[in-house]
Amino acid sequence: MFAIAPVYWMLTISLKTEVEQFATPPPWFVFTPTLAHYYDAFITRGFGQYLLTSAIVAVISTAGALVIGTLAAYALARFELPFRLNRRLSLWILSTRMFPAIVTAVPLFLMMRDLRLLNTRVALILIYTAFNLPFVVWMMRGFFADLPRDLEEAALVDGDSRLGALLRVVLPLVAPGLAATAVFCLIVSWNEFLFALVLTQTEAAMTLPVGIAGRVTQYEIKWGVMSAAASVAIVPILVFALALQKYLVRGLSMGAVKG
């Protein structure tokens, strides 16, 4: 009820005329639906552009974090590093997730300014990749650790290289975990607001959350447009999660029981 109600409210707002949006009591179920706000958001205003930016940034940063994080996690899970570095490195990586993101906002803003990356997608991709990395490393490290070593050893003895064994034997077996991790990263990147707000001010580089929030202005709040855009924003994540649902459940419960 608490989870669904706001979504329902948002969906209905996006379909109501402005008069009906503010009627008291609100027309809960019966109203005259209109797509005017959707037209307004995506045709008249630049929400299509925001959507594209969000998609590019989210997909590339998720892919980047998965590639780098998976390799790092595999190394941490399997190789014996000196000075108990396995544990220390892991904790250090985790600790980067512990401070509030806002602390890094100003330093990152200055860095990106000096690198001339303000108002670019590259800046957001880099930051989202970095912020997703610890999560990927920790999730994947757990999945790798649960996998019996025998299989990789068999692959090595069979003549495969480390990387080959990882690609052909290990990754297919942790695919459910990989899928679950990917969904989380995608959601985080897709919904991220703070850095996107700080680092992008131009239409071309703005992501959807920033774009939506931007409709709250000094003079008026465009509830209809915001709701329309937000409703559309839900769709890709929903589709992706549904497509991976089969894996998600297995991934989330992976390691819970020995199988």
Binding site: P148, D150, L151, E153, A154, A155, L156, V157, D158, G159, D160, S161, V169, P172, L173
Partner: peptide, 18 residues
């Protein structure tokens, strides 16, 4: 390991499940 050209049979068999 991969260049030693030896074959090993594991106690767990270590067949690739996928």
């Amino acid at each position: 390991t991969q260049h030693r050209d030896l074959a090993m049979v594991f106690q767990s068999y270590a067949l690739y499940p996928h």
